[in-house]
């Protein structure tokens, strides 16, 4: 019995679909065991083909991308109904991802397309050709349908994809399973840590990092300490701070707030005390774009309740 697999993209860049190639020769072992029933990026199939499938006839469906449009929502609801197990594949489906930072800029269409932008109205004779309506917010997959498991990452690293296929092909995907480590990235990061303190905060382009020592100690906002391991600390190894694509560790809660607390705790401008407050504030102020930095992938998943409160406040004030 081959594993009946569906892969679907919603609001995504396409990188997740390509990421399967990262398996390299390993793909040759996996492919013969799969029956691809639906995978628009790979084989031609339309919504109608999916609708024709019996309920729960797909063994495993993987969705990559953020839920951005009404069509995204309908499609994943349909997939949910047709699948035994449905997983979020990649950071967008898992957490909202980079596209969901749009939630932070509610007037983004104006910013991007200029004033007066609105979706074109469909021809009256072909209403089905109308572009799908944008949802008021970009959503992670689990806000729309129940999600059984997560293959995280932007895109998921090869090792985790392999781990997923191994489990899926042997029918051992656990409910709620996240195919990544429970421990944070620092566990696998080869960089060394001395006495931890943050005397400045810099952006990656501002320094040439020392190749051996912890990037956080060098002032970069590395989200490694709050992010699941599983990528072998690929970015820090290449001199770039972790931006959190594998999502927070199981007990971290909101990764941005957890990291905010850690960063503020580490800041030192000389000896702690009232005299140091102004310089400490200066260091904290040098964290440019805290939301984009700390919530890069996780904004939709974690910041939405606050953001809704903020929206309401704006309306009240208006």
């Amino acid at each position: 019995m081959k594993l009946k697999l569906a892969v679907y993209w919603t609001g995504s860049c396409g990188g997740c679909d390509v990421s399967f190639l990262e398996l390299g020769p390993g793909l040759l072992d996996v492919l013969p065991q799969l029956e691809i029933v639906f995978w628009p990026a790979l084989v031609d199939a339309k919504r109608g083909d999916l609708e024709k499938l019996p309920s729960r006839s797909i063994d495993v469906a993987l969705v990559n991308g953020v839920i951005r449009t009404a069509e995204n929502k309908e499609m994943v609801e349909l997939l949910r109904e047709k699948s035994k197990q449905l997983g979020a594949y990649g950071a967008c489906a898992h957490l909202g991802g980079v596209p969901a930072l749009a939630n932070h800029a509610p007037g983004f269409t104006e910013v991007v397309f200029g004033p007066g932008f609105r979706p074109a109205s469909p021809w009256p004779e072909a209403p089905e050709d109308a572009p799908p309506a944008l949802l008021p917010e970009a959503l992670p997959l689990d806000e729309v349908v129940p999600v059984d498991f997560v293959v995280p990452g932007c895109p998921p690293p090869a090792g985790l994809i392999a781990r997923f296929f191994q489990a899926a092909l042997s029918g051992e995907v656990q409910a709620g399973q996240v195919f990544a480590e429970d421990k944070a990235l620092c566990e696998e990061c080869p960089r060394t840590r001395e006495e931890r303190r943050l005397t400045r905060i810099v952006r990656p382009h501002e320094v040439v990092p020392d190749p051996k020592t912890c990037l956080l100690d060098q002032g970069m906002v590395c989200l490694g300490p709050v992010t699941r391991g599983g990528c072998q600390a690929a970015c820090p190894q290449a001199g770039m701070p972790c931006t959190g694509c594998l999502g927070p560790t199981p007990k971290a809660g909101d990764p941005a707030l957890a990291m905010l607390s850690a960063l503020a705790s580490l800041v030192r401008a000389g000896e702690e005390g009232e005299d140091a407050f102004p310089q400490e504030n200066q260091i904290l102020d040098s964290l440019v774009d805290p939301i984009g930095t700390l919530y890069k992938y996780a904004y939709a998943k974690y910041a939405r309740p606050l953001q809704r409160l903020a929206r309401r406040r704006e309306e009240v004030r208006a």
Binding site: L260, L263, A264, D285, L287, P290, I291, L306, A310
Partner: peptide, 11 residues
């Protein structure tokens, strides 16, 4: 201090 900055940026 940092939390208030984030809240403010959220609105």
């Amino acid at each position: 201090y940092l939390l208030r900055k984030v809240l403010e940026e959220m609105g």
